[in-house]
Amino acid sequence: MQLEHVSRTQRPFAASSPIHGTRGEPGRALVQLCREIDAAFAATEASAKISFGQRVRTALQTAIADPELLRPEQRIGSAQGYCRHLLAADPLNRYAIAALVWEPGQASPVHGHRTWCGYAVIEGALAETLYRWDAEAHCAQETRRHPRAAGAVSYVDAGRGAIHQLGNPADAASRAVSLHIYGVAGEQIATHVNDLLAA
């Protein structure tokens, strides 16, 4: 199992923070992504016809289309394991947004989710292995594998209905970068998202 490296390359901010264009301030794409996630929460509370998950997927697709979404230092990986850069944290602790950088051969452990989450591949390609939970054997059983190319977007609710492993194949020519939104406070992204499971 590989350990992950967590970097805080940008301080958490409120979506309503002004943009000054300075190096430490969030770019327009990140601010817009926060606004869209805030709107998804508001729409869900108002019983909107479009689901929360659909809104998160759409927000991710829009965000990754902006080439200035991430600064160069937010695309830096680590030889010790995949690297998670915290980009933004909701001031109400409803969600956190992070960029994950995967060097060739790095992968997450097999896991379910303790919270809702969505991700999109920004650069390179990832491989995703899906599992189902076998209650009798008390472990995850592999069901299928598929590539996740740049532009791929995924959303899952909490629970063991969406067990997977995500990673950059060992034979990949370069790193991969993905954008993730988790339904936790910023300081909890490394501890309260994944439900690690035996496979």
Rank of each mutant, 00 (worst) to 15 (best):
I97V: 14
A43P: 09
A15S: 10
A149Q: 11
L70S: 02
I50E: 14
Y82W: 15
I97Q: 03
A149S: 07
R55Q: 13
G24R: 05
A98L: 12
D171N: 15
V110F: 01
N93P: 00
E36D: 15
P67Y: 03
A125D: 10
R94L: 15
V177W: 03
F52L: 08
G27A: 04
Q106G: 02
S7K: 11
P67T: 05
A190D: 13
N168R: 01
A137I: 03
D90H: 08
I19H: 08
Q32W: 13
A40L: 11
G112C: 03
A79T: 15
A48N: 09
G161W: 03
G81P: 11
A96K: 00
P104N: 03
G27P: 02
A40H: 01
G105Y: 00
N168W: 07
Q61E: 15
T44F: 05
E68C: 09
I189P: 00
A46T: 11
R11C: 10
G183K: 01
V153D: 03
I37Q: 02
R145D: 07
L100C: 10
G105I: 08
A185E: 03
T9D: 15
L69H: 05
D134E: 05
G53K: 01
E128Y: 01
Q80Y: 08
A120D: 05
A42K: 02
P12E: 05
G105W: 01
I37S: 01
E187L: 08
W102L: 08
T115G: 08
P109L: 01
G77P: 07
A149N: 07
P109Y: 00
D90P: 05
G77C: 06
T44P: 00
T44Y: 04
A158Q: 01
C117W: 13
A199S: 04
R160Q: 04
A29F: 08
I181C: 07
A43N: 13
A29W: 04
